[in-house]
């Protein structure tokens, strides 16, 4: 693998930061190791680990936080309402066991949405975040057809009052972007923050490629799985206790 200068700097910065800082502070500092001037690189891969056993039935802290953070309008028909993250209730057909878990864009390493997108508007950022470049999205909805997790929605109406950090508008497709504007500032996604504050502490966010990060350690030592593993999409959102 050959690194260009920028990648090299990013890796160097990450190494320095991880060496210098106390474990609890690492996440924030890590993201800040990339200056606003530097492009994201594949030295990192952002991911979320969901511990479903901690996800309480009836809790929707993550959902409300997402709606608020991204300014998702709630005053529209349910069948066209944007839901970047949703809680899903599962009941086992055989045993009747019930559990709930959050579903969102799984940030596939091999995203079918990006494969089918005719213009390249759906794409995977070098650090693993999958998002839509709304400037070139033509609103064909092919990505919605292709997504195996029903993770996307289409903006069906004119919008006003968007959040400054989260531009979105009619005629384009959208989905969870892992709060990319926050991650670029070195902060964690709103859902993760809310879950750890108000919820069951079921969500962990971090760099899956950094062996010292909590998420990487837990992925390495505990059982976890991706949803629809047979599709081999290598998702960035992993689940425990499915």
């Amino acid at each position: 693998m050959s690194l260009d200068r920028r990648q090299f700097l990013a890796v160097g910065g990450a190494v320095l930061a991880s060496a210098a800082l106390a474990p609890g502070m690492r996440l924030v500092e890590l993201a800040e190791a990339r200056s606003p001037d530097q492009a994201v690189t594949n030295a990192q891969r952002w991911g979320i680990l969901v511990d479903t056993t901690r996800c309480a039935e009836g809790c929707s802290a993550c959902v409300s936080a997402c709606n608020k953070e991204n300014g998702l309008q709630q005053n529209v028909r349910l069948d066209i309402r944007p839901q970047w993250i949703r809680t899903v209730t599962l009941q086992d057909e055989q045993t009747g066991y019930v559990q709930t878990l959050p579903m969102m864009c799984q940030h596939c390493e091999e995203p079918p949405c990006a494969d089918v997108c005719p213009t390249g508007a759906s794409f995977r950022r070098a650090d693993g975040i999958v998002l839509v470049d709304r400037h070139i999205c033509i609103g064909c909805r092919y990505c919605m057809m292709a997504c195996p997790y029903k993770a996307r929605s289409f903006v069906h109406e004119n919008l006003t009052g968007q959040r400054a950090d989260v531009p979105r508008g009619k005629g384009t497709v959208e989905g969870c972007n892992m709060c990319v504007h926050r991650v670029d500032e070195g902060r964690i996604p709103a859902c993760v923050e809310a879950c750890n504050y108000d919820g069951g502490k079921a969500l962990t966010f971090g760099d899956m490629r950094d062996p010292a990060s909590e998420i990487a350690k837990r992925l390495a030592t505990q059982q976890s799985e991706e949803i629809r593993p047979n599709l081999n999409l290598d998702t960035g959102v992993r689940y425990q206790g499915l």
Binding site: R34, D37, R125, D133, D184, E185
Partner: peptide, 21 residues
């Protein structure tokens, strides 16, 4: 700037639309 920001996460303030606004 738009392409740099969306695709590469580069968020230098100078020509960022939010900054203009």
């Amino acid at each position: 700037q738009r392409d740099l920001t969306v695709h590469e996460g580069i968020r230098t303030q100078r020509f960022l639309l939010t900054n203009c606004v």
